[in-house]
Design a protein around this nucleic acid. Structure first.
Lengths: 195, 195
DNA sequence: GTCTATACGACGATAGAC
DNA sequence: GTCTATCGTCGTATAGAC
């Protein structure tokens, strides 16, 4: 809707708030970041900020949603339709944001949490994208068909999420090596040493 | 340390607090559980509880440590020296505790967090245990040696941690299937369909 | 619709009496 | 070792100016 009108300014401010929140959480982590800090960064009072969001959890959920969206767009621009490796790299790099993602996923285990819906729809979509990647790999002979693509997708996503936990504790952890190891093990062309 | 004396009661109370905290977090989740609730369950005031712990994060860290310890003992009793599958199952079942584990791992990304040291020493130990399991598997021909055991260990732990995130959102997720799939793919005896 | 001011209840934490 | 009392900060709720 390219509708001009009274909503224009509000949407701009809402976007400014989301970007400011993202920046602060990236810099200072999930813990110890208050809404008052975010409000101050936007030259706003706390209630002024809350005018745009239902709650702190709602704001955080939208920050996560925005991150996912920009990552998705960037990926589409590269004409990398189901580059599984890119899906992995997208989340990484910034400890504060990985911490945000993991913390939100934990909190979203409560079905009443605003982020629950986000994750509940994100995982099936992600699974389907990765399953497509797997199907392509199978067709090209890069990936074994011993396990159904849907189940391999669950496995690949688990590796991507899980390695982030290890990386959060030890930043020297190589987040791409396990992925490459798994893909290499899945590759039928890699002659397995038959016992 | 069979020393009798003034510490006896204190240690008992400390243990009671840890068990009470574990129970409450298991039942009500990580969010929305306050120290005052834990204190009440122990017939104690908040400061009375804080006498035993430096901070909330310190208490939570010790809860996690206790869980790890009991799981380790239970495993040793079974003479299941490096049962990798048991390591996986140990964490599961209770959403509140999985949520606690994931939340703590995220918070522990800060080196100043009391749980950081716990995870920082836990992961290498876990990695070594799983690597032993892998080495046994390689010796028995159950696991391919295409990837070094140390790297397979990282991969296996990532799967175990990562699948928990998916399970937190969708409880119908099978947490053992991806593990079995991975082990099956790693098995050289499973004839790969050569393209 | 956008925003400020003010206030509320609950939290984790601490000081000091007993 | 345990208490009462209190502190500062958090997220949230409401009233009302523009």
């Amino acid at each position: 809707m390219a509708k001009r009108g009274p909503y224009e300014k509000g949407e701009a401010k809402r976007s400014e708030i989301l970007h400011a929140a993202l920046e602060i959480f990236a810099a200072e982590g999930y813990r110890g970041t208050s809404l008052r800090k975010v409000a101050a960064k936007c030259s706003l009072s706390l209630p002024g900020l809350m005018h745009y969001f239902d709650s702190k959890e709602d704001l955080l959920t939208q920050v996560l949603r925005m991150r996912d969206e920009t990552a998705r767009v960037r990926q589409a621009e590269r004409a990398d339709p189901h580059g599984y490796r890119e899906i992995i790299r997208e989340g990484a790099k910034t400890p504060g944001l990985v911490e945000l993602f993991v913390s939100m996923a934990a909190a979203a285990s409560d079905p009443a949490h605003p982020a629950h819906a986000h994750f509940a729809e994100r995982y099936p979509v992600l699974r389907e994208r990765v399953a497509d990647f797997v199907r392509d790999g199978v067709a090209e002979g890069r990936i074994s068909s011993a396990v159904p693509p849907e189940r391999l997708a669950v496995l690949l996503i688990a590796v991507a999420d899980g390695i982030q936990l290890q990386w959060l504790i030890d930043r020297s952890t190589d987040m791409e090596q396990p992925i490459e190891d798994l893909l290499s093990v899945l590759d039928p062309r890699t002659a397995p040493d038959g016992a």
